[in-house]
Nucleic acid binder design. Structure first.
Length: 292
DNA sequence: CGTTGAACCTGTTTGC
DNA sequence: TGCAAACAGGTTCAAC
């Protein structure tokens, strides 16, 4: 579920709820999605939450410096496909698949829920955090037109795969990749390096507008994504391509198609988003003959 | 370099 | 109705 807008929604909710609070105690359930469960159990109690930030699809819960420790460090959380992190009153009934409880000094607790456990949780020193985040590409909302074109243009992979590659851009997932390609009228199988500067500029603008709108609407709720207050996002109502196979394109009325690109379902309009130039066999043969 | 498929794990939807 | 297959917002890894 969680791509950049959903993670941003979770981060904002969490920030408002727990900034400045201290973690009193930790309880863990299943721990197979944690780098080092012991480090979380031992490292969190007594620490104050001094910031909650988003980096791509990662949540960074920054912790105050600890006596006897040089660097402050942070709790790094990735929500995977079904993860969720929010603060709850201690008496609130528990959701199924809750695997971590962090009790706060005001009586409430932060809970991590994740049915599939594709998420990740890890205690990190400043250095580890910097190294981990250094592997990620540019923030889609901050990247300049020039840098975007350079990053996209240096890849010979299909644009859908390029958008999903977190080393190129951080935070884009399957929904917003398809939505931005539809908006920019670019076929998901086009090769990154074959996009013109104009097309790249259109894609960057489309992605930016879509992400900002999605954040404003608190993300897309496909299954059961809810924000920190338990309210579902609204952006799924705006989807123009994702999940709309067989329905009419909002621009031209052509049926939206679903294909698999980079191992992921990809929805697009075959009329608005023209495919990579792949001449029919007879034509290709004739062209090749001409060149020789 | 790039692509594909499988793996991780659980739940929901779809099809026969 | 029942059961199996397909599919799901993500990432990583082996094999080609």
């Amino acid at each position: 579920m969680p791509e950049l807008p959903e993670v941003e929604t979770v981060v904002r909710g969490l920030r408002g709820a727990v900034l400045g609070r201290s973690i009193v105690s930790v309880r863990l359930g299943k721990t197979d999605f944690m780098d080092d469960a012991g480090a979380i159990e031992e490292g969190l109690p007594g620490r104050r939450i001094v910031a909650v930030e988003r980096c791509g699809k990662f949540i960074v819960v920054r912790l105050g410096a600890e006596r006897g420790r040089a660097s402050a460090g942070a709790l790094l959380v990735h929500l995977g496909m079904t993860g969720h992190l929010a603060a709850w009153a201690a008496e609130q009934p528990e959701k199924k698949h809750t695997h971590a409880w962090f009790a706060l000094d005001d009586g409430r607790e932060i809970r991590y829920t994740d049915a599939r456990r594709f998420g990740r949780m890890a205690m990190m020193t400043e250095e580890e955090l910097a190294r981990e985040m250094g592997r990620l590409g540019a923030e889609p909302l901050e990247v300049s037109e020039e840098e975007f074109f350079l990053r996209i243009g240096s890849r010979r992979a299909r644009i859908k795969a390029v958008l999903l590659d977190q080393r190129v851009l951080r935070g884009v997932g399957n929904i917003y990749a398809d939505e931005s390609l539809w908006r920019a009228r670019i076929h998901p199988e086009r090769i990154g390096s074959r996009l013109s500067a104009k097309e790249a500029a259109a894609l960057r603008r489309a992605l930016r507008e879509i992400l900002l709108r999605a954040i404003a609407l608190r993300g897309s709720s496909i299954a059961d994504f809810v924000d920190a207050e338990g309210a579902p996002g609204e952006y799924q109502r705006r989807h123009k391509a994702y999940g709309r196979e067989g329905q009419a394109c909002a621009r031209c009325g052509t049926m939206i198609r679903r294909i698999v690109v980079a191992g992921r379902s990809s929805f697009f309009c075959p009329r608005c988003q023209r495919g990579p130039r792949r001449p029919r066999k007879g034509v290709a043969k004739r062209l090749r003959k001409k060149k020789r």
